[in-house]
Write a protein that binds this DNA or RNA. Structure first.
Lengths: 193, 193
DNA sequence: GGAACTATATATCATGAAGATATATTAGCT
DNA sequence: AGCTAATATATCTTCATGATATATAGTTCC
């Protein structure tokens, strides 16, 4: 049996700490709440769930026999699991590693193919603005809720992070476009003088 | 022989397009220029270099015999390689997938352990400010150069992206800290009333 | 001069993550 | 009754990361 599964283990425990989950519901929760900043595949989730049970961090209950419903396996966090989650929460988070393909293309392509890069930047701006609009929607909903803010503080802060990030990326792309145009003009002037 | 190596192939071609490279110099270039937005390991670089030669996108020259220097293998991009790079540049970049561990911890931990999360956020702010300071330094240098701006436009735009990103992340963390404190106060008031 | 350390350089292996695919059931719609 | 979408579990291949091994060249310091 495998010994370590990186961070997958902990996002599963974190979600199970709120309520019992199936593999599928975990996938959906991550897509809903953390999509912009985290993702897990079934290829990670199902083996990790088994590992969590093996290690005593979760219990599983198969509903296959109990009812005539479709086969589902519900996983519940154990006390040992809650302690493990708490331990992980107190550890310093790893430095995040980003891979922005558009930056490679901008860097390698501005000189040779400014028109193509401009198109990529336009699409990038649109993508970031769409994400922003969606997130602003969530933030408005959160703001309008008055009563039980405790449960949603985490979701609110996640959405807020998205707002900052996508705004920054859009603004960068806008400025990048300008700089590429300015640069081109500067070059033409030099040629003509 | 493997058929595909994701994006690694293209960052190698992009760097080779500027000048011939060794595996080691490629690693160093990525660390210098793209560290904040891209990373490659030797475990990706060396096999991919061999693949590029096999596919005809690069030539290699072994300096082992020619001189009494240490063994180095220098890779040079071919015309076919330049075409392949150009083809990739014109393709739409993939959507980037971020993994921000701190967001998981903030989301799972704000309610239960606000003090620990506050520490994580402080460290996060410091880390982003350090990155920002370094990047501002580069941008100043780029700005002070007057003459051959063409070659550095790419590097400038990369640095600029870092500036936007790290500013946004720092600002988010500052606001997140405030919101967590406000939330705590609100909760205490509710308890006492 | 030699010892210790850092930078250069190539290479592989184990682990972790992403993406695709297979399979089957249930719910809702027309 | 038939179609489609959503629910649900599971595996496999490929890609990426990190650790480790090995060796040489240059630099620093006693």
């Amino acid at each position: 049996m495998k010994k370590d599964t990186g961070k997958t283990k902990y996002i599963l425990l974190g979600l199970m700490a709120k309520q019992p989950q199936t593999g599928y519901s975990i996938k959906k929760s991550i897509e809903n709440e953390f999509r912009h900043f985290w993702q897990e595949s079934f290829g990670q989730i199902y083996p990790t769930l088994k590992l969590l049970v093996y290690e005593g961090f979760a219990d599983c209950a198969d509903t296959e026999t109990s009812e005539n419903r479709r086969r589902t396996i519900t996983y519940t966090i154990t006390e040992k699991g809650r302690l493990e989650l708490k331990r992980w929460l107190s550890e310093a988070p790893d430095i995040e590693k980003l891979r922005y393909e558009i930056l490679l293309k901008v860097s390698f392509g501005t000189a040779a193919e400014p028109e193509i890069i401009d198109e990529h930047l336009n699409a990038f701006i649109e993508r970031n603005e769409n994400a922003l609009a969606e997130i602003e929607g969530f933030l408005t909903i959160f703001n309008d809720l008055e009563i039980p803010r405790k449960a949603i503080l985490g979701s609110e802060l996640t959405a807020l992070c998205g707002k900052y990030l996508y705004t920054a990326m859009r603004d960068w792309a806008v400025e990048a476009k300008e700089r590429i145009i300015n640069h081109k003009e500067l070059e033409n002037e030099t040629k003509n003088s």
